[in-house]
């Protein structure tokens, strides 16, 4: 693996969400820049690497941080601390995301292509490929809001893979399609993998993960519980799920509460550097002050 090209390098990555008790609490953090009274650590420090030509599955029970992780990788969210190095382009497919309901399927395809900066000629070509892959028939000319969830997934998938990303993330988007479309997607994903692309696959369907993934990351309440070959990790994960399901309701509840408590009370080591916005520098403040004074002086001159 040492010689393989590292596509994604994650080091001590954390993500905290601010929890606000009320509106004024929210306002205080905005105005004074202080931290929220309570935070929730969706990710408590992950480190791993993903290589080119690899398919990596992400498993974990609800609330383990899967979506937060893929949103960080696709740069929809900014990390709280830690390093995230992505080499190459990323495309993400999540259920229903990134499509505009008002526009037709065709217009959505064109809009996505335009946003990527393709030329009209390139768009015409890509458009045809996407239409064929999505296989929506006459619906391609209808607004996306009239689509079924399966049709949306098909269009979303078709658009995402034709963006030709280096890293393709699939966030539970294949679970809504039927078997025919699923098979078609799986063929395509395997082909992409063979072509050296990296695939990150979030799913609760463990058989899908077995079919596609070389390695699996098991997230557990914001921690990386296990990372390794698919077979090994899934075996342990299945064992955990079976054990968890056999517990009594009270035991389950106590376990979850404890885990959530740990996510609420988690603290970064004091030396950790937080990703922080640049504060206003003194020259900028002086400039703002000068402009305000000038505004006041001229305003008074006009009024008096």
């Amino acid at each position: 693996m040492d010689e393989a090209q590292v596509k994604l390098k994650v080091q001590a990555l954390t993500k905290a969400y601010d929890l606000f008790k009320n509106k004024s609490d929210h306002l205080k953090t905005l105005v004074f820049g202080q931290r929220a009274a309570s935070q929730f650590w969706a990710l408590k420090g992950l480190s791993f690497e993903i290589y080119a030509g690899e398919a990596v599955g992400i498993v974990g029970i609800n609330g383990s941080g899967k979506s937060t992780l893929v949103n960080l990788i696709s740069a929809r969210l900014a990390p709280t601390s830690g390093q995230l190095t992505v080499s190459g382009t990323v495309a993400i497919i999540a259920i229903g995301a990134g499509l505009k309901g008002q526009l037709t399927g065709l217009e959505n395809i064109r809009l996505k292509a335009l946003m990527q900066g393709l030329t009209t000629q390139e768009i015409a070509q890509v458009q045809q490929e996407i239409i064929e892959f999505a296989d929506l028939g006459a619906f391609i000319e209808q607004p996306v809001k009239t689509y079924s969830s399966g049709m949306r997934a098909r269009l979303g998938f078709a658009i995402a893979i034709h963006q030709k990303p280096d890293i393709l993330i699939i966030d539970e988007a294949l679970s809504v399609g039927d078997q025919t479309f699923y098979n078609k997607c799986m063929q395509k994903l395997l082909a992409l993998k063979a072509a050296g692309k990296t695939i990150i696959f979030v799913s609760h369907a463990l058989n899908q993960i077995t079919q596609l993934c070389d390695r699996v990351i098991w997230l557990h309440f914001g921690d990386l519980k296990e990372i390794g070959p698919t077979k090994m990790v899934l075996q342990n994960y299945r064992a955990f799920i079976t054990m968890f399901n056999q517990w009594s309701l009270t035991k389950k509840h106590t376990y979850q509460t404890q885990a959530k408590q740990a996510q609420a009370t988690f603290e970064l080591a004091p030396t950790t550097v937080r990703t922080k916005a640049q504060p206003m520098t003194w020259p900028t403040r002086l400039l703002a002050l000068a402009l305000t004074s000038l505004l006041a002086v001229v305003g008074l001159m006009i009024c008096l």
Partner: peptide, 13 residues
């Protein structure tokens, strides 16, 4: 611009 650059990384949050 000051506000924009200060809060841009957190827009999604």
């Amino acid at each position: 611009t000051q506000l924009y650059f200060k809060f841009r990384p957190r827009f999604m949050d």
